[in-house]
Amino acid sequence: MKHLLSTADLSRDEAVLILDTAAQMAATQERAIKKLPTLRGRTVVNLFYEDSTRTRISFETAAKRLSADVINFSAKGSSVSKGESLKDTALTLQAMGADAVVIRHPASGAPHTLATSGWTQGAVLNAGDGTHQHPTQALLDAYTMRRHLVGESGIADVAGRDLAGLRVAIVGDVLHSRVARSNVDLLHTLGAEVTLVAPPTLLPVGIAPWPCRVSYDLDAVVTDERPDAIMMLRVQRERMSNAGGGFFPSAVEYTRRYGLDARRMARLPEHAIVMHPGPMNRGLEISATAADSPRAVIVEQVANGVAVRMAALYLLLAQETPGSTLQEDAR
């Protein structure tokens, strides 16, 4: 594993290794001294072409906790706003000796281009590209599900376990969501059954071959499939206007049919957890009752994000360079 570009590239064993490593990283974050010397002298560049607060801060925290040097590069107010191409930016970063580039880009496939073009020698981590993938978000979601739903709800040791048999419903704007795409791939690899729930207008064309079920009816999914985890996706209010695409007629109608309110919460199984990748639109896709309920793990997802990103940086950077594979040293 040289780069982390898409959850579709991960085998089951690689994904489980990342989750197990994240568990050890999370354990170190409960200590008084949270900083580890592991990546001392390495440089991680956060290359953000899109606005993002939580993902950038999460990656920055993860890199700093491992003692790497972090350089933040956002497109606004930089050479990019003067018209510099991705290639020239990448070559500049390479000249400065970046060991890893964390990239968020509005164009699907930009991280892949960066990783395969030879513009940079370092590891490339996809922090969200267009409507394609957001692998660390899916990994932190899987980590959160494993903690709560596998091994008698976190009592037993879950190291080495996948998510076999879990049922997950992902509800909302699947069409524009890289979180949904990453989660479908990863959760399928880990053995979970995924159901996507959305109005027909917010599902992409050509969804049939995806390894998941699709439904237009949230109430039927909650009642019949009894999901162990329900993940609400962010819906942008702009999308209902004609300028935004006119995907649904009104916010109230969306909330009635696809919002997670107290009524649907009550019909979820007792142990089910409520997830949201953030930032939330309270009152649109998720009600305040659901967001603040003890079954919501939304704040914990943020904390787990740091541990998962520490694991990804560790596995990509703390190894022989270049060209090593993910394997344990025989010692």
Partner: peptide, 21 residues
């Protein structure tokens, strides 16, 4: 006491699995 993340030779070996402390 797992010492993997404190080793001085991490760059010279394939990725090591982290143990529990």
């Amino acid at each position: 006491l797992d010492i993997t993340m404190y080793r001085d030779d991490l760059r010279h070996h394939p990725t090591r699995t982290i143990g529990a402390t």
